[in-house]
């Protein structure tokens, strides 16, 4: 068993999971289903912000978002702003969110990812791309449905490596 106590290793560990999320976010799937792709990076970031609020700071979230913008090729600053805002909300309210039941968290995640999608949509709108609002909600819904799975999987990993 490894114990990750050093803050640097914890940071690296979180970065590793986020990069894995980023890989899932760009994994090629058919355009017909692309609207249903969950926002992996956002969900993983929310998990860490709720559970280890002292580690991934707002600036950290912002940098991850900027990396996502660069990799995905959208308007730079879009994901950065969205993730920074989401991280801020989660960190301010992490104690309350932690006390929610899993299903209530799931609903709350739907709202959070919806906000994330709204910000991204505004930013993409600067280039003239338009997505129907209902379609963005589809991805928020799948992200929310992903939450219980993510909660269990990341919880396991966290216990395995004693990340606190």
């Amino acid at each position: 068993m490894y114990r990750l106590k050093n803050p640097v290793t914890v940071h690296l560990f979180i970065a590793f999971t986020l990069i894995f999320g980023l890989l899932l976010a760009i994994f090629p799937i058919s355009t017909e289903y692309a609207y249903l792709r969950p926002e992996f990076v956002c969900v993983i970031l929310v998990y860490w912000c709720i559970n280890i609020p002292q580690h991934p700071g707002i600036f950290y979230a912002w940098c991850v978002g900027l990396l996502q913008d660069i990799v995905e090729g959208g308007v730079w600053g879009g994901h950065a702003m969205a993730l920074a805002v989401i991280a801020y909300i989660c960190m301010v309210s992490h104690q309350r969110m932690k006390s929610y039941s899993l299903w209530r968290q799931t609903f709350w995640l739907f709202v959070l990812v919806g906000m994330h999608q709204a910000v991204i949509n505004w930013m993409q709108g600067l280039l003239g791309y338009r997505t129907a609002p209902m379609l963005t909600l589809a991805s928020s819904a799948t992200s929310a449905l992903m939450w219980p799975v993510m909660y269990v999987v990341l919880g396991r990993i966290r216990k395995m490596y004693h990340v606190h």
């Binding site: 707002i58 600036f59 912002w62 978002g65 308007v75 730079w76 600053g77 879009g78 950065a80 702003m81 920074a84 805002v85 930013m123 600067l126």
Partner: peptide
């Protein structure tokens, strides 16, 4: 951070 993001997006 929000202001910086908006500036970057507009510049982009």
């Amino acid at each position: 951070l929000v202001l910086v993001s908006v500036t970057i997006s507009l510049a982009y």
